[in-house]
Nucleic acid binder design. Structure first.
Lengths: 345, 345
DNA sequence: TTGTATGCGTTATCAC
DNA sequence: GTGATAACGCATACAA
């Protein structure tokens, strides 16, 4: 931290650069924004002045005057969940090269915090919004509708998309896992879940749906907690499952890999043979899943793609304003994939 | 996405609210900003108008007029590295309750990208900047100096802090690990590192320093790659280490836990007895470290604290402007801690 | 190709 | 306690 160098106090503006380069402010503006119609020698003169002065354009003024913000608002429910890392990477990898900025909010799985974030975000003329899931408050939805800003709801398949929806069906994914375990001849299948947000509940619903149809559903084998998930929580919940069912359980679907890794760890301590006597399936396919012993069966979801697709769709919307001839699909299914490894028969 | 409701097209401003509430725009502004000096009944009238119209203040205009942005710029080199999740959480947990926004940039370990990000950031009148390490370009450093914005360099101990430095000595940490392994009677100690950013290099330097002093340094046991680290990369590099040294190696320090987990996995495949015949020490103490088998010895660093402390220091600077009587320390050591588990004797 | 006038929506300042 | 006026720094629209 230090003082401003020469022009201490006052912030440098277009005018200062213009004076130095002996042109008008608007010409400087044109150079800054890379307009073609500026003579080469003038451009060079201006660029030299900018460099010499160390001029940095004031973005607030620019946004105010042009109402172009190059800003994308992103709302995710958690910063601890590694799942969102990949999603964010996908978003940034598309946004940054296009010179768009990302304003990220952590909503802590709270619709109220989300609404507050949406409000502040909307005050900054964002050119697009990426939000998680479809459980916004009605007030938030109304604001979004009224704003006319492209909105992408990511992660899950939502019921009435505000605008565009990029994700996959967690119900189907949960169902697929149940079917997989059934196919592997497990019959007393439990469920371990933490946090229990909307999408986790949907996975559970799909899972229960299939088990129920196969007459294999026993809800005492469903152990959940609203607390955040972790490896240690997985171990804890697994012990609970085994206590409650008195060990009458031969497989478990964990709502994410962290939990599953904890279950795996604990099952070894219990000397439970995985996968022969006990099958474990996780969710997300984090890198460690492949390196667990036995390697963890899980469900691969295209996290990075959800992020990059969301950004791409926003750019499509931005660049084809009101173009009704080439409608953009309002649901993009990023799918999922069962990954069977050694933790299931 | 939809049309604006009533006043379609035009965006709502203070003036609209003022008209509706039959007061002047400035009064609305006062209500919006929670000034005390507004009569209760006027305030209520204004608030009603705001609610009815669904008015959202334009932040660009506000920032332009007041040059108060409530914006903190954060620059991190990677979004894949889980280390930064915790740092970010620490930042957000302090910033958000104070109504500050966080504008996050991913610099991809590139000083050039970092400089670009700093430039755009500085254009938005941030009230504080949190940047990673001390390897900014000289141009970037100059801009930061000139800006008079509080700057916190986090993660490592940097040489000439631009302003404030929050982190710990990676050199010392690397040295401590070397000493630990030596103390456990390992003598042919290798190093496996990926990415090899500045802080990783410092850990290696500290490590080599101690080994060298103990006459145990053999640089052929140092295997590194500029590529990003991962569990699989750990396994790969470990095989390389064993090939190059023809197995003449009895311990390894991995520059992070992911790598170490990969080494652990691979050593089992090689039937190498850990920790008896081979010791492994990681870095960071991610949750999985404790759940590996054998559990991984590692170094705990206070990631969350680095983030929260950085924000706290910025707030101190903001709230005590130029207060020379209570100087803020320009280096805050967040420390580290050796965590010895079963992967070392 | 370059410049002039004007407005973007808010807040600071100073009246009332 | 409330209001009028003038910035804030830039970009749009148009003129030259």
């Amino acid at each position: 931290m230090a003082n401003n160098d020469s022009h201490s106090g006052k912030r440098l503006t277009l005018k200062d650069v213009a004076a130095k380069a002996d042109v008008s402010p608007i010409t400087v503006s044109r150079v800054v924004n890379g307009y073609d119609g500026v003579r080469a020698n003038v451009r060079e003169k201006v660029e030299a002045a900018i460099a010499e002065l160390g001029y940095i354009p004031n973005r607030s003024a620019s946004v105010l005057a042009s109402s172009k913000s190059k800003l994308i608002g992103v709302l995710i429910p958690s910063l601890s969940n590694v799942v969102f890392n990949d999603v964010l990477r996908g978003i940034y990898d598309i946004a940054t090269p296009a010179n768009y900025q990302v304003l990220l909010f952590n909503t802590h799985y709270s619709a109220a915090e989300e609404e507050r974030a949406i409000r502040t975000l909307l005050g900054q003329s964002p050119e697009g919004l990426i939000i998680t899931g479809g459980e916004q408050t009605t007030a938030a939805k109304a604001m979004l509708q009224a704003s006319a800003v492209p909105v992408v709801q990511i992660m899950g398949e939502v019921d009435n998309p505000i605008d565009i929806n990029v994700g996959f069906s967690h119900f189907d994914a949960g169902a697929a896992v149940a079917q997989l375990l059934l196919d592997k001849s497990y019959s007393k299948i439990g469920f371990i879940g933490a946090r229990m947000d909307r999408r986790t509940c949907e996975r559970l619903a799909g899972f229960e749906h299939v088990l129920s149809a196969a007459n294999s559903l026993d809800k005492t084998r469903v152990i959940t907690t609203p607390e955040p998930s972790s490896v240690s929580k997985g171990a804890l919940l697994f012990r609970e499952l085994m206590t409650i069912t008195k060990g009458d359980c031969d497989a478990v679907f964990c709502c994410n890999d962290d939990l599953a890794l904890g279950v795996l760890h604990e099952s070894k301590k219990m000397q439970l043979k995985v996968p022969e006597k006990f099958g474990i399936c996780g969710f997300n396919d984090i890198e460690m899943a492949a390196y667990a012993e036995p390697a963890l069966s899980t469900v691969r979801v295209n996290r990075y793609n959800m992020g990059s697709k969301a950004m791409e769709v926003i750019f499509e919307k931005i660049t084809s304003p009101g173009d009704k001839t080439t409608p953009i699909a309002n649901y993009i299914n990023t799918g999922f994939e069962l990954v069977t490894r050694k933790s299931t028969r």
